[in-house]
Design a binder for these strands. Structure first.
Lengths: 208, 208
DNA sequence: TCCGGGTCTGTATAAAATACCAGTTACTGG
DNA sequence: CCAGTAACTGGTATTTTATACAGACCCGGA
C-alpha cells in the first residue's frame, strides 16, 4: 500500500530535481509540462496520491504548496550519538546530542548516524578520543571491517574478526587487548559499520 | 553601494528562514504580513532593491519566484582540493575535484575548503594518507596549530612551531624529520589552519 | 534646494495556480 | 465480469500572486 508506483517515483524525483534547480517547488502546470501531460489535473492527482502515501505534504490554497517529507528528514541531518543509555536502542531520542548535515555523497554506503568515540583504543586506525565516526546501520559485517558493537550494554568501536563461532573485537592500539566473544555464550549486537571518521577542531592542537 | 540596509538584511534573513521552514519562497503578501506592511508593494520594492544589489534573483511572472544567490553558493558546498598545480592559487578552479556540503556548525572556525592529504607524515595526529582536512583560510597561525603551508610550490600539512625568525614544520610521525624554515631566506605561505579531519570509507578496512 | 534612494500606503488588474467536476483507458485481483 | 486503482484528457470556477501605478514621508548629498 505504501509502495510507490514507478510513475509516482518519477514524479517525486522530478520534484526533488526541480527544488534543487529552482529553489522552489513546481506548480501543477510545470509538472504537467515536464511529463507531457495535457492537463494539470494529471499532476494534481499524482500529488494527491503521493500525499495519501505520506511522501509529501500539500498546503491547501498555497501556490507551490508541495513539501517533500524526505527533504525534511534530510534537513534534520545525521543524529550525533553521545553516551548510549543502557538498554536503550542506539537511535533513541535521549541519546541524540545534536544533528549535523553531511553530504550523502561523502560517505558510502550512506551513514545513518554519528557516534562520538571515547578512548584511544583505535588510535592506530586514526580514530582518536572524541572523534565522530559515521556509521552505516547494518548487521551484515565482514572481517577486518571497523564496526560499532554492543556487548553487555557497552557500545564499542573495534575492528571485527570472525573465526567460526568466535568473534574477536580487535583494538588498533598495542596498549589494549583484543576482546574475545563466544557467540554461543554471549550475545553480540552489531550496531553498524564505520564508513567514515570526522574530527572537530584540530586547530587548537590535538595530541602529541 | 552593494551594502545592504538593516531593513534589507532583515528581509533576506526572513526569506532564508521561510525557505528553511516552508521549503518554498514566500510571496510578496507573506513578506508584507510578516513585517506588518499594509501593502504588498513594500515587499515588492524591497525585492527589487535586493535584486539590484545582486543578493537574489526574481523570476518574472512566477509565483514565489525568489532565488537567493547565497543559497546557491551554500548548495555548492566546500571545494575539495586534490593536487595543487604549481604556482596556482590553492582555490583555483583546476584544483577543485569535487564539492561537498558540510554542516557549518560542525567545524569552527568555519572551513573554506577541504584538502586531500598525501602521505603518513601526520599519522600520530590521526591524519592518514587520503584523509580530507577541513581548512580555515587565514594567515594568522599560532604555534602548535596544524597548518597548511606552501613551501617552494609544495603544499604540506604540518604542525606549526615558531622560534623567532625560524619556523619549524613538525610532522607527527617519528619516521619523518621536522622541516626548518628560515623566514629571512625562504618564503613560507600559510594557506590556512586545519579545523577538522574527515575520512571516507573506513568500512573496507584501513591500515594495520 | 532639489534629487534620488529607501521605506511605506492604497488601489487595481492580469496572470498564475489551485481545486473541482466529468469522462476515458487500461490493468489487476476477487 | 466487475470493482477498484492508476493514469490520464478537458474544462471551469475561484483564489492566490505578481506587478503596475499613484502617492507620501524621511534623509543625505550635490
Amino acid at each position: 500500500m505504501n509502495e510507490l508506483t514507478p510513475r509516482q517515483r518519477q514524479i517525486v524525483e522530478f520534484i526533488q530535481q526541480w527544488l534543487m534547480d529552482a529553489g522552489r517547488p513546481p506548480t501543477r502546470a510545470e509538472i504537467a509540462k515536464a511529463f507531457g501531460f495535457k492537463s494539470p489535473n494529471a499532476a494534481e492527482e499524482h500529488l494527491r496520491a503521493l500525499q495519501r502515501k505520506g511522501v509529501l505534504d500539500l498546503s491547501p490554497g498555497a501556490s507551490r504548496g508541495i513539501q517533500l517529507k524526505d527533504s525534511l528528514r534530510e534537513q534534520m541531518g545525521l543524529p550525533l550519538i553521545g553516551r548510549v543509555a543502557a538498554g536503550k536502542p542506539i537511535l533513541a531520542e535521549e541519546n541524540i546530542e545534536a544533528r549535523y548535515q553531511i553530504d550523502p555523497q561523502l560517505f558510502s554506503p550512506r551513514p545513518h548516524y554519528l557516534l562520538k568515540v571515547k578512548g584511544m583504543s583505535m588510535k592506530d586506525a586514526g580514530i582518536l578520543d572524541g572523534d565522530l565516526v559515521a556509521v552505516h546501520r547494518t548487521p551484515e559485517v565482514r572481517s577486518r571491517q571497523i564496526v560499532v558493537a554492543r556487548l553487555e550494554n557497552e557500545v564499542t568501536v573495534k575492528r571485527y574478526k570472525q573465526d567460526g563461532p568466535i568473534v574477536w573485537l580487535m583494538p588498533a592500539n598495542d596498549d589494549f587487548d583484543p576482546i574475545r566473544v563466544d557467540l554461543k555464550e554471549q550475545s553480540l549486537i552489531i550496531e553498524g559499520v564505520v564508513v567514515g571518521v570526522l574530527r572537530q577542531g584540530t586547530g587548537k592542537g590535538f595530541l602529541q
